[in-house]
Design a protein around this nucleic acid. Structure first.
Lengths: 150, 150
DNA sequence: ATAAATCCGAGTAAAATACTAAGAATTCGG
DNA sequence: CCGAATTCTTAGTATTTTACTCGGATTTAT
């Protein structure tokens, strides 16, 4: 798993939608101003979230983006996978680099390290799928309230 | 955490040292042949492992590399950090990008996503630090024995 | 001496990243 | 119906990272 700005900005963008799109859809302009991310860059991110079925869009004036389902049913893993692609699926080189007769893993070392990558991937997957966007929305509202001392 | 070939090859290289450097040190040539990694590329990897204090080297003919401490006391995390640098420490942009008067996180969303990156980093760290090189050595020997049906 | 090694520094081609730019297509409000 | 606000689509580009290679200097066992 690589955490580039794609993933970081994208999650913030989606969180923004979750927070502010209850009545009207939020536009790129809105997100851009609130999050300090350029509209042009967001234009690259949103289609990915849409293709993944996380948001829907309305075009034209007063258009913008909405979540397709409740924030509680969207995991951070869903978002990151939509933006960054599959989590670091490290494949076993022993199998691919020798397309001659030899079957299986002749190199025991390779197989053993493969086990390491799998462990890492599993722990990442478990973590990101365990955090729901809904939780982040709640936390964000708490923080916001605290900051304004309501 | 980024899993590039640096980390993947490097872990295999160190595992090779752990497996074969009991009597004599292992040379780059040895590792290269057994692991199918070019000597030239290994030349770039080994110094990192050495700087991190994981291996020691003897120069000249019959020279090579050895572990500095038992494999059971080296974690995969030690190795990957030595090779890839720090694990994805995602910093809070809210704090850095505004060096004017404003204190703390004015952007609650940013703070909330920051919590996500911390969770991810922690789970990765816990995983890689939990796997010891010694364990991999044992597993590798088992696999090797099974393959040769001893 | 000679050969086998580690060291050291530089260089480089390809890919990924982090953007920006421009214009077409759509839709609402007046 | 017009115009402004939007999303959509495609392309381009500068920077950084990755994954290497290469040449030669230095050290050391035999």
């Amino acid at each position: 798993m690589k955490l580039s700005t794609k993933g970081r900005y994208g999650l913030r963008a989606l969180l923004d939608v979750a927070l502010y799109a209850e009545e009207e859809p939020v536009s790129l302009r809105n997100i851009s101003e609130r999050q300090g991310i350029s509209e042009a860059y967001l234009e690259q991110l949103m289609p990915k979230l849409k293709k993944a079925g996380l948001i829907e869009s309305t075009r034209g004036a007063a258009g913008g983006y909405r979540l397709t389902r409740p924030a509680s049913e969207i995991s951070v893993g869903d978002v990151l996978r939509a933006l960054e692609g599959e989590l670091d699926a490290v494949d076993c080189p022993g199998l691919k680099e020798k397309p001659d007769g030899e079957e299986g893993c002749t190199n025991a070392d390779t197989c053993v390290t493969k086990y390491v990558w799998q462990q890492i991937n599993e722990s990442i997957t478990k973590t990101v799928d365990g955090i729901k966007l809904g939780t982040l929305v709640e936390q964000s509202r708490h923080l916001h309230d605290a900051y304004h001392e309501i």
